[in-house]
């Protein structure tokens, strides 16, 4: 049984349909990438999975239970955690408080003082900056807080929306290395990225979204060799 199973989901903003009859699955322990250009519906899909948006039809099952159109606080409680695009930190709160609030759900709250040590292990920089306001951090550090905040919720499945957005190439590399570590520790990862090269290298499988539909899917290695992907996304 798939860990996350999306079947025939449709999502619209008013009259504009953004996600079209989309199906995808993520198995436990996998790293799965969703790639596609701007406006392909990637962010909309993640927001629908995490409950910020409602699907007009279709089902989303997480660990076998239907979660479509449940509010985000219920979905987080079950271990499906969404690290949003653009980091969205609580800018006037300290790094430590940002991480603390990441463990707000009742499942993670009791263990937060233990979890935070693991996050500081993953990002030693954040331990140094724990008393600094989030707004005073650099872009790379802010992304570390965003990912660390997601880890604080003790995710079974971590969904990340463009974690490499706006970062210098060297930081992009270190973010992907961290994601590798997170996956190796046993967290299932669903990654939305425009950096197709890095994300497919990290992933077991990938989906290519175009106009809100799955245009291609398959093992990451096969996708990287696919002529269409080479031309359209890898610029080769």
């Amino acid at each position: 049984m798939a860990y996350l199973e999306i079947e025939n989901v449709n999502v619209s903003y008013g009259d504009v349909q953004v996600v079209n009859d989309l199906s995808l699955t993520v198995n436990e322990g996998e790293v799965v990438s969703i790639i596609g250009g701007n406006g392909a519906g990637k962010t909309t899909l993640l927001k629908t999975i995490s409950g910020l948006l409602t699907a007009s039809s279709g089902t989303i099952k997480f660990k076998g239970e239907e979660i479509q159109n449940r509010p985000p606080e219920v979905i987080v409680e079950r271990g499906l955690v969404h690290v949003p695009e653009g980091r969205r930190l609580f800018s006037l709160m300290t790094v430590a408080d940002n991480l603390d609030i990441g463990a707000y759900n009742t499942r993670a709250y009791g263990q937060r003082n233990h979890t935070i040590l693991g996050v500081y292990d993953l990002f030693p920089r954040l331990a140094e900056r724990r008393e600094q306001l989030a707004m005073t951090l650099s872009g790379g550090e802010q992304q570390m807080v965003a990912i660390g905040r997601g880890m604080m919720a003790l995710p079974g499945l971590l969904m990340l929306d463009e974690p490499s957005l706006g970062l210098a190439p060297i930081l992009v590399l270190s973010i992907f290395e961290t994601l590798r570590k997170i996956a190796d520790m046993g967290t299932t990862v669903l990654l939305v990225e425009q950096d197709v090269n890095h994300s497919l290298r990290l992933s077991d499988r990938g989906y290519v979204l175009e106009h809100g539909r799955v245009a291609l899917e398959g093992p990451a290695k096969e996708l990287m060799d696919n002529p269409h992907i080479k031309e359209a996304y890898l610029g080769m």
Binding site: S50, L52, P71, P72, E73, V76, E77, V81, H82, P84, R88, L89, F90, S91, L92, M93, D97, I101, G102, Y104, N105, R149, A153
Partner: peptide, 16 residues
């Protein structure tokens, strides 16, 4: 405080 700064992000933390 989190809700006052970004209600959608706070919602994603599991805050109703």
């Amino acid at each position: 405080r989190a809700t006052s700064m970004d209600r959608e992000a706070a919602n994603l933390m599991g805050i109703d």
